[in-house]
Structures are given as structure tokens and as C-alpha cells.
Simulated scan of single mutants.
Amino acid sequence: MFYRKNLPAWERIARLVAAAAMGVCAARFWGTPVGYLWAVLAVPMALTSMIGFCPMCALAGRRIRAKSELQAQGPE
């Protein structure tokens, strides 16, 4: 694997729902610049949700802690 997932499951689901909503808006306004814009924005949102990796989040240093890291910390 070339990347480490940096999106939690709840955010992946939220991104997929948002991408579907953007797709509906794109279909509704298809043929106009706004429709094309919604389509262009929906594609990377859907791809990052399915893959589980967001390049912009990686640039910001965001990552998911591994279960072993959480167990090593112990209870807080």
C-alpha cells in the first residue's frame, strides 16, 4: 500500500453522502457552468471517501492512530 488511511469511517460515510448530494445538484443543473462545477467537485470527494485517503489532510499532518498506539497509551 502506498498510503496510510487518514479518514475515519464516519467521515468516509459523510463524504460519500456529500458527494451523492453534489451529484444530484450536478444532474439538476447539467448543461450550465454550475452543474459542471458540482460534477467536478463531487468526483474527488467520492474517490477520497472510497479510498480512505485525503491528500490535503495528509499535507496538514492528519492521521488515524493505530489500535496498538491507543492501547499503549492506556486509559486517560
Rank of each mutant, 00 (worst) to 15 (best):
F29L: 15
K67V: 08
M1F: 06
E11V: 10
M1G: 11
M50H: 01
K5E: 12
L59I: 11
L59T: 15
C54Q: 00
L37D: 04
W38F: 11
K5S: 11
R62V: 15
M56G: 06
A58I: 02
A39P: 06
M45D: 08
P33V: 05
V17D: 00
F29P: 00
A19L: 02
I51E: 04
A46T: 01
L47N: 05
A60D: 08
M1I: 02
Y36P: 11
Q71V: 13
M50P: 00
L41F: 02
F2A: 11
Y3A: 05
E69H: 10
F53W: 14
K5H: 06
R15S: 08
L37W: 09
C54N: 05
P33A: 01
L7N: 02
L59C: 09
P33N: 03
A66S: 14
K5Y: 04
R4Q: 13
R15F: 13
W30D: 09
M22W: 05
R28Y: 15
F53I: 00
Q73V: 06
P33H: 04
G31Q: 05
E11A: 13
F53E: 00
A9H: 10
L16E: 04
M22E: 12
M45C: 12
V43W: 13
G61P: 02
F29H: 13
R62Q: 14
G35C: 06
C54F: 02
M1A: 09
M45N: 14
A66E: 15
A39W: 09
G61V: 04
A66M: 12
P75D: 07
